[in-house]
Design a binder for these strands. Structure first.
Lengths: 188, 188
DNA sequence: GTCTATACCCGGATAGAC
DNA sequence: GTCTATCCGGGTATAGAC
């Protein structure tokens, strides 16, 4: 099989297993077994298990990193940011799962990323919470981010791996509602 | 040191490390080191690493399981359910983190729980989504559950480990907003 | 209840033939 | 590009003295 295809298949298999069993819970033998080869064959395509994880996440994380770069300079609204997050998660159910549910794996490759995963989350929350946020605003920012990730994953499962337009709108609306400062009822 | 105290200390240390590094990412040696003993000493108090995880989660999971039992028979509203989830998460930042972010660890002890973690999540979502839910209702249920867990964790971090009343109210409000079906603007 | 020492296994990784 | 064979380290767990 041509090397590029095999490399791609390894990445697909790894994405699925990492999402299901976690990164540390998945062995090289698991991947090789699914691929139908021995573990040694894997090392022709990737120098290490970590390299597979990086090969999987580097692209999406660079995209996300660029998104964050555009925040300071640009005119992005929270809605733009949440939409972008939803679309990134929608790109791959597996990657979104790893990103959302395996922080330990992310931390393991932090040093080889353009910025640390903690930093990216912090910047995202800061952008969602707005300038000089109080505790309530920070809580709402966390809520909105959680919705964008978790509800997108749920929608992907409902849609058989694809995110329907109506579902995307529903996720975004839910995230925006959780982000919105509730209207205070004025004292009578 | 009296056995009960040591056992308790082990659980506390394990909770913190499991939350920070994940279950598989934490070694018995890590726990023993933090405890100031050798790994062998740990095995006087717990027969296995899994037993530590179970000792940690069995109580809260039983509580959550009872909560779900009460749903069918009782008159619980989504608000009651979300409040209960928030309070369970607020009980221990560490346990909530494990529960939310380490599904692989939960799956590992599934067989020894009153019901599987997947089953518990499914029942929770069903209760939040209401009878005969459409896709949109299921998405909103997922959103609300994600808010209850993630925003509570955020609030605990903001509050130094405790959940202030105002913060609890903010989390619940955000979860309820994400759950609420948006009012449809009637065609003119 | 904790120690020293160690058995045992498993997972990541390498060497070298084909 | 994939194989067989193997090394090596680290992690769980045990034996038995103190």
């Amino acid at each position: 099989m041509s090397p590029v295809d095999t490399k791609q298949r390894i990445l697909e298999i790894a994405a699925e297993l990492f999402a299901r069993q976690g990164y540390t819970g998945t062995t090289i033998a698991d991947i090789a077994g699914e691929l139908g080869t021995t573990t040694a064959a894997l090392y022709y395509h990737f120098p290490s298990k970590q390299a597979i994880l990086i090969g999987l996440l580097a692209g999406p994380i660079r995209a996300y990193s660029r998104l964050l770069d555009g925040l300071d300079s640009g005119e992005s609204t929270p809605q733009d940011l949440l939409t972008a997050i939803i679309d990134i998660c929608a790109d791959s159910r597996e990657l979104a799962t790893i990103f959302d549910r395996d922080p330990a794996a992310l931390a393991m490759i932090d040093s080889q990323l353009p910025r640390s995963s903690a930093e990216m989350t912090a910047q995202t929350l800061a952008a969602l919470a707005g300038p000089h946020p109080g505790r309530a605003a920070l809580i709402r920012a966390n809520a909105a981010l959680a919705v964008a990730k978790a509800a997108t994953l749920a929608a992907l499962d409902l849609g058989g791996g694809a995110l329907a337009d109506a579902d995307r709108a529903e996720v975004l609306a839910a995230a925006l509602r959780s982000l919105a400062e509730p209207v205070k009822t004025p004292a009578p």
